[in-house]
Design a binder for these strands. Structure first.
Lengths: 249, 249
DNA sequence: TAAATTTGTCTATTGATATAGACAACTATA
DNA sequence: TATAGTTGTCTATATCAATAGACAAATTTA
């Protein structure tokens, strides 16, 4: 009867590490509004005292939540609760990464992760109107909004027409701007196929997701206004951060 | 894409220890009937292979579940799933611990944990018809059925009439037998008040429960056939092991 | 009775978890 | 520009978690 732990307090030797328990309690506090969105968490020292553990243990918990995309830590300023509202990403005839997210985020860009030249697969060749095995250039990219990964994509282009688009991508951080360098001032989305599955190991790593996370998958073909296919792409969006809003195709 | 973990498999570095994850999966297997009640679990070596961990890790999981009263390990024979069926404990005019459980268990008895003489509290004095502060003897007991704790109780008696009942209790392991030594051949339950709450730390320890476990609480007064109060008691029953069956009072 | 099966105990090693303290790096503010 | 407040990094130590192997103890089976 004496020294009773408070109900729902941290349990030691329970098989669940303290940092995981604290991370869960922080998540819960966010869900109940105890820790407001977009606001700073109490400082680490305060949290350590609040939960009765060492500051380093709190840091482990925070670090896990930063990895999960729930928090963002800024040295000297504090640790902030990120908005859990999902980005609404429009899918339509004129889908563009950055323009589509205008007004929802303050900063967005595309990071080029890797690029390579390879023979076109059946699917890519068909979509781009090339011969099977024709050389195509593949760009692996990650879309970020406010420093948060919101998409992971692979895009293929006919290398005979778009040689050097990887360099343009790396420099501009934009597909639209890169295509402009090749004389493409406008393009349309010809087709989009939508599906969903569990994120694979690569996507988990690239998007900072937890095992079991779900990704929305779009497979799309972009064409010039006169119908000439220029780009085939497969994009994965973490379902917990993004929703796709379909507009007129 | 390669070496993907099977869905719902054991996760390392997740903040949840392997032994806890395995214990949970064993619980789940019991719940779904994969591991039958009263039957032996697969041997430790088989479980270790099944879950892809060391035998010692499986032993940690089993050890936790033995502690929780879910399993019983017998050297040389195997590890057995205990019956999760709750004892049905009748509450009525002639409630007796051992007789009430006849047929449901093969062995039951009451263990005297502690006894003391103390001044009667308001509640005890009123119930026993004594003056406030009159000396009463308190027995702290634990009821066990087939080696499993099924109740934890405190009982108060007027010390002027039942001096030495603690000794009788320790010797006989039965309230009924102890009262018989004081000339009480029959007694009735006058009143019973039923409630439920979370087990406190003492009950958790005495009953071998996990934090968060629920106990049913009965507060009762026993009287002689002519209406003279002889015993006031508060009993706690682990809700996961016991249900109370109300009969005519 | 002997052998096989199964749980129990012991030693040893490695990595993850948790605590402790000190100080650096960065930010906001008086 | 100081100063206070905050996150980041480093070292050190102790305990828990997990693996590995060997053998004892108890039970069942051939």
């Amino acid at each position: 009867m004496i020294g009773q732990p408070v109900a729902d307090s941290i349990e030691r030797r329970s098989g669940v590490s303290l940092w995981r328990q604290i991370a869960d309690r922080i998540l819960q506090a966010i869900a109940t509004g105890d820790f407001a969105e977009n606001a700073a968490l109490p400082p680490e020292v305060a949290l350590a005292e609040r939960y009765g553990v060492n500051r380093h243990t709190v840091r482990s918990a925070i670090s896990a939540l930063v990895q999960e995309g729930v928090l963002r830590a800024e040295q000297g300023r504090g640790t902030f609760v990120l908005s859990r509202k999902r980005l609404s990403y429009p899918i339509g005839a004129r889908t563009r990464f950055s323009t589509g997210l205008q007004g929802q985020t303050s900063e967005r860009h595309i990071v080029l992760l890797a690029s390579s030249v390879e023979p076109a697969s059946q699917r890519v060749a068909e979509s781009l109107g090339l011969a099977r095995g024709a050389e195509v250039i593949r760009l692996e990219t990650r879309g970020e909004a406010d420093g948060r990964p919101v998409s992971r994509a692979a895009a293929w282009f006919d290398v005979s027409r778009f040689a050097g688009i990887d360099k343009a991508m790396a420099e501009t951080g934009s597909i639209t701007a890169s295509l402009a360098r090749f004389g493409i001032d406008d393009y349309l989305r010809q087709s989009t196929v939508l599906s969903a599955r569990h994120a694979d190991a690569a996507d988990l790593a690239d998007l900072g997701l937890q095992p079991g996370a779900i990704v929305l998958v779009t497979v799309a073909v972009n064409v010039t206004p006169d119908g000439q296919p220029i780009q085939f792409s497969e994009s994965r969006f973490p379902a917990e951060r993004v929703e796709l809003k379909l507009s007129a195709l």
